[in-house]
Deep mutational scan, measured.
Amino acid sequence: MIINNLKLIREKKKISQSELAALLESSRQTINGIEKNKYNPSLQLALKIAYYLNTPLEDIFQWQ
């Protein structure tokens, strides 16, 4: 199971779900699903999230 700190990191950087979704060329619903652990992002999307949040991938997503 993958757990994530996306919501915590996103809020700390003062970025809304909609703003992050626009940067990622994704939907706000996708970001919401990832944050609620209802959806696991593809590797490509996970890497883009890490890039746009300027945060190491392993700080956002962790195996448990």
Rank of each mutant, 00 (worst) to 15 (best):
I9Y: 09
E25Y: 07
D59Q: 13
N37D: 08
N54W: 06
Q62M: 11
E58G: 13
E35Y: 03
K14S: 10
Q17T: 08
Q62A: 09
E58F: 11
L43H: 10
Q17L: 12
A21V: 04
A50H: 02
A21T: 03
I31R: 01
F61R: 00
G33E: 15
L45N: 02
L8C: 15
M1C: 13
Y52P: 00
L53Q: 00
K7F: 05
E35T: 02
S26H: 09
T55W: 05
F61A: 00
L43P: 09
A21G: 06
S27C: 08
L24Y: 00
L47H: 10
L6P: 03
E35Q: 02
P56R: 09
I3T: 11
K13H: 11
I9R: 02
D59L: 12
N4E: 02
L57D: 00
N5G: 03
N54L: 07
L57S: 01
K48H: 05
Q44C: 14
I34R: 02
S26K: 10
R10K: 01
Q44N: 11
A22K: 14
M1G: 05
L24W: 01
P41K: 02
S26V: 15
L45G: 00
E19H: 12
N4Y: 06
Y51L: 09
L45V: 06
L47F: 07
L47P: 00
Q17G: 03
I31C: 04
N5C: 13
G33W: 14
R28W: 15
S26G: 07
N54V: 06
L43Y: 14
I34K: 01
I34G: 01
Y52R: 04
S18R: 14
Y52Q: 08
K12M: 13
S16C: 05
K13M: 15
N54R: 08
L45E: 05
I60E: 00
L45W: 03
I15T: 04
Y52M: 10
N4W: 06
A22Q: 12
L57F: 06
I3H: 07
F61M: 02
T55L: 06
N4H: 03
A50N: 02
I34E: 01
K12D: 09
E35F: 04
A46F: 03
S42I: 04
E25V: 09
K13D: 02
L20T: 00
A22I: 12
A50Q: 03
I2G: 04
L6Q: 03
Q62G: 09
S16M: 05
Q17C: 05
M1R: 07
A22R: 14
L6I: 03
S26M: 15
K48D: 07
I60K: 01
I15N: 01
I60R: 00
Q17D: 03
L23A: 15
L20M: 05
P41Y: 03
